[in-house]
Every structure is written in structure tokens, then in C-alpha cells.
Amino acid sequence: MKELRFAQNFSLIALNAQDSLHLTTTKKVSLRCMAAAAILEIYLDNGFSRTGEILSFTKQDLGHSSMPSYQEKVLKTLLGKKEVISGTLSHYLTKVLRLSKGHLKEMEQAFAASLEEAQAIEEIPALLGCDLEFVTAGISMKEYRSHPELYTRLIESLRAEILEEGTMTDEAILMLWLLRESSCLYDLFSREELKRVAVQIQQLLEDSALAKQILPITIHKFIETAYKNFLKIKRDVMSTPTGSGLNFIFPVLERSQSIFIETEEIFPNKKDRLRDLKVRIEEKGHDFTVIREGEVPLVKIDNVLYEAVPSATPYYQVAVHGVRLRKYPLSL
């Protein structure tokens, strides 16, 4: 399989398990970060003309046959009607905050097409479609699923590079920043590991010129977050130069979904419950693997780990028994 480029690698993480039909809040954040990843990819490949810290790009530079379509789409959007754009890297990156819904949709198509061409991503029925409410309402939804092997290799090598002692590559530093800005960091690292990540960020800010340039930049919109006001208070109290503290422990953006799947029997035992869950998930076209059995089994559905917590939910005054899927960090 062809090796993916930097922005494609980030998109593989950012788009995995995202609604492919609607422009959700989490997808908007992912798409902005994917646009930033495309800018960083051009920066890494020396695609900008440089005069000191100022990077320039002209309309004539567009349309090279070697330029991936998603890069072209991002640059065209940034250029707009201008013939040339100039600014620092920070200036380019913060421009993604002003991308309209229309632009974000066009970018999604360009990124998804390039990943589909590389057979790195596919569209499948969404896991949320297995939820009791959605099944009952007959709503079908679709989501992206990254190629499982590519996805595992990518996130595991990133985890290795970020958590290990030693020098981090430029790609890993930039990926760390993108993961932080897109709130994907919380999918990849456990809470314990996040403490190590915070130390690593602090170290990078002391040692790496690239990290000093990149890590202070923020491209997420707090207005889009469910915890906006809550975090604002916490940030004032706990802010540190690295953005750690409570801000680092609690995700800026909650990416997980609450999914309830009912079981066939009213009081199922743990084996029946797991069997029913497997049947329901697999009949909707998802990959299902049991990682750990027990009262609260750990299962892998597509590329995401979940704890299947026994639960009951009221439905027209009747308690429906089943399991609620609780997202688990991929740090097992």
C-alpha cells in the first residue's frame, strides 16, 4: 500500500468514526485541523517561498501536477481572489478559523477522495444507527471508517514517538499539536499517559524551535464546545504555559457519543448480553472484537475501544435492558 502523506495521516485519525453525511461540530473542528495539516505539509515540503519568517504563496504556484488535490483546495480557499498571500506560519494556521461551512464541505470531499483513492478510508453505516432510539426511528446514518491496519500502525507509532524518551521528529511535533487542537489526543492516550504528554510538551517548548513556534497557537473555537463556560473558569484558574492543568485533563471537545443497545432478553446474563451486542453490531456491518470479557466487557468496534456497561433505559414507561457503550482510550 502507498505511504500516506502527513495531512492524509492526520485525516485518517480525524475522520475516523465521524458522521460522513452531516457537518457536525466535531467534524467542523476536524476539518479545520485537516486544513491546518495541509498547510503544515506544504511547510514541511518547503512549498512556500520564504523571506525570513514570512511565507508566501502565489496563484501561479497552484495547479502543479504533483500537488495533491486537497492541498490545492486549501490553498485556493486561502487565496480567495488574491494573487498572492504572505504571512507567518501562525498567520496561515489561524486563517482556518475563518473557513465557511461551504469551504469545509469542499475540503472534506477533497480529503475523503484522496483517502478513498488510497483505500485508506471507507463509508459504513454509523454505529449510532445501532442505538435503540435510532433503530426505532428507522434513521440510517453513515460514518467514515479508517483502514484498521493503517490506523493502528499510525496511532501506535505516534504513541511510541510521543511517549518515548528522545528526540521527536518534526512530523510528530506537528501531529501532537493537531491532535491537541482537534481533541483527538483524548482518544489516543489514557489520563495517566496525558501527564507524560504534558511533560513532553513542556520539554519540547524548551528544546525545539518548531515546537516553540507551533504549540502556543490555538485554532479551536471555544464557542463550539459543550464545556465552553465551564472550561473558561477552569482555564483562568489552572492555565499554564503548556495549556495543561484541568484544560489538559478534560477534553476541550467531547467527541464520544452515548450509544444504547438493547438486548433480546430482559435480564440477560453477561454471556447473552455480549452475544446480543455482537449480533446487533455485526448485522449493521461493523467489525466487532472482544478484547476482555467480564461484567463490563471491553470490546473493539471498528477502530474504537468501548466498555459495554450493562444498563437500562426508560422507554414509554418500560425499562429496556441493554448495554451502553462507553468510549475507552486506545492506550490498552
Binding site: 505511504e3 511510541a160 521527536m168 521528529t169 518534526d170 512530523e171 510528530a172
Partner: peptide
């Protein structure tokens, strides 16, 4: 410090743990 391509990794005598992850899955 740039990330090495798979071609370069496959030609190297020594690899990092991250590269070993990429090679073996």
C-alpha cells in the same frame, strides 16, 4: 528532524521503537 520514509527505514540497520511499530504493526 524529519520522519524517515518506509524505504529508508527498511534500509537501516537500527530503528526506533516507533519505526518498529510501523514495520511490524
Amino acid at each position: 528532524s524529519r520522519q524517515r520514509s518506509m524505504e529508508k527505514i527498511l534500509a537501516s540497520e537500527f530503528v526506533s521503537i516507533g519505526e518498529l511499530v510501523r514495520l511490524t504493526g
